Computed example of a mutant assay.
Amino acid sequence: MAAELTPLAISVLALLKEEPMHAYEMYQLLVKRHTHWLVKVRPGSLYHTVERLARLNYVRATGTERAGNRPERTTYELTPEGDDALTRRVETGIEEYVHEYPLFPVVLSEAHNLDAEDAVLRFRSRIVDLERWVTEIDGALAGAQERQVPEVYWMGGDYLRTQLISERDWLATTIERIESKDLPWQPRNNP
């Protein structure tokens, strides 16, 4: 069953391993910790994930409260089955490589449909965007270090930073190769 856990479900179970909380609190904490850089976090999908985890008996409701005019909020806690599922999913996720299908390699494989100058312009634009992301991550990582958060808790951010820098550097080299004609660029065929 642990293989059924989505990245968001893993994050929810990990939060509940720390302490019981309600879904909105989970959402706020995931954003505060910048987990939304690693996992697609939206309030609706978070509530759906918590409900699914409850059906699987990985989490259970411990109570409902209402503060003022706010809607009722149900607090959840991790069950022993949820703790076991989290552990098993982290273990297999580390051990086993899973080939994913991100968009960028697909569009990169079709970049030959652009003129070389246009492709280079768009590569440069992507580099600027990548550098912005690296700067944001650097700030978050520096903040974690200043707060003396143990490195083991922000390794995911460091890994993401390393990936972004690698992509940026690869794109810069590719631009140099296109401009020096070391990478011959075939003109697109117009129908």
Rank of each mutant, 00 (worst) to 15 (best):
V39T: 10
T162G: 06
V39Y: 03
Y76R: 02
A144E: 04
T92M: 06
V90E: 13
P102L: 14
S11L: 12
V98F: 12
E18C: 02
T173W: 00
D115T: 10
E65F: 08
A23Q: 04
T135W: 06
Q163P: 01
E136G: 07
R188V: 10
V149F: 10
L13A: 12
V152W: 04
T162V: 03
R89E: 10
E81P: 00
K181F: 10
P150F: 01
E151S: 14
N189W: 14
R126S: 09
S11R: 13
V120E: 11
R161G: 04
S180G: 03
E179Y: 07
H34Q: 14
L15Y: 12
W154G: 13
A3T: 13
R122N: 11
E25F: 03
H36Q: 13
L164A: 00
E77R: 07
G68Q: 08
I175Y: 00
L5Y: 01
K32Y: 11
E25W: 04
R73H: 05
P105C: 06
P150I: 00
W154M: 04
R126W: 10
E167W: 00
L53D: 09
L16V: 09
V128G: 01
S45N: 07
T135G: 05
P102G: 13
I175E: 01
G63Y: 13
Q145C: 04
R177Q: 08
G82A: 07
Q145G: 09
T49S: 11
E117D: 14
L164H: 00
